[in-house]
Design a protein around this nucleic acid. Structure first.
Lengths: 145, 145
DNA sequence: CTAATACCTCAACCTAACTTGAGGTAAAGC
DNA sequence: GCTTTACCTCAAGTTAGGTTGAGGTATTAG
């Protein structure tokens, strides 16, 4: 099999994902393929690394949309080099550091917080993480208790 | 307002969630209410803490189903005490420790891994984390962003 | 007493990330 | 050449965690 002749089935098996997942990633613009004479997908070998990177990023909690954004920084007209991938990993590492840090702060305030009854109060560290990572919805309302 | 006369609207406002969320949590068995003569929901004050705990647990990446399981260990016939909640927080703290540990290992192998090309190989640490957190439910753990 | 809110139920809709299935074609094995 | 396996497209289904809206009732403020 030449460098540019990977079939969906082979890629799927090699990467441990389903064929439907590869179709799906393609519709989302995360991977590309060319078609042979019979309209079947064929991939270049670098798709393997892309998929691996997608899977790794997902384990870090990164969404497909964000992965797509990150991929858009890769070179268009040539196969990404190790250095190109390295750049991505550095970028995500910071993200991962932030997530870890957030969870650690959450952990450190957890024991005191859940038990003590402060959860609905304005000074609760869990409720008031001054952190974009934590912000969701409209947030708690300060009331007495 | 007596201890057992919280309306949905008040609870929602106090906790920073929507009324529909409270309805939803009720259908999932996460909170309970009683009805007044006009069929409107009324809550006991302890629902406030339940909701706070749900929110805190979600930030740790715990699913509603798991939260429900944890709640099932709370006493049925009396309002949970601080000690009861403390037990839960200890339980989840271990969970959180495991998640942090997992992310740290992921981070430590990331730089070497994404760049080096080993990602699709059998011995790649990212691909072979022997970790249940990495494979629980549908996809990776969801974290706040 | 009346109008403005607040609630109620139930069904449908939403996003993410896929999976499943139907109906049909291509490629590969013997 | 024939049969099995691999692919193709497109639509619809799935799970989590909610949100939105319609049509109707209860409560509350003035």
């Amino acid at each position: 099999m030449s460098e540019a002749n990977w079939t969906v089935g082979r890629v799927a098996k090699r990467c441990g994902v389903k064929v439907s997942t590869l179709h799906f990633y393609e519709t989302r613009g995360l991977i590309q393929s060319w078609r042979n004479a019979g309209n079947q997908r064929r991939y270049k070998a670098d798709v393997l690394r892309r998929i691996s990177v997608i899977k790794a990023a997902q384990k870090m909690g990164i969404s497909l949309e964000e992965i797509k954004q990150a991929f858009s920084t890769l070179p268009d007209n040539r196969t990404p080099t190790a250095a190109d991938w390295q750049t991505l990993s550095t970028w995500w590492r910071d993200d991962l550091d932030a997530r870890i840090d957030y969870l650690q702060r959450l952990r450190d305030s957890l024991t005191g917080c859940i038990g003590c009854g402060c959860l609905s109060m304005k000074n609760c560290p869990i409720y008031n993480e001054d952190d974009k990572l934590a912000s969701e919805g409209s947030g708690p309302v300060i009331l007495d208790r």
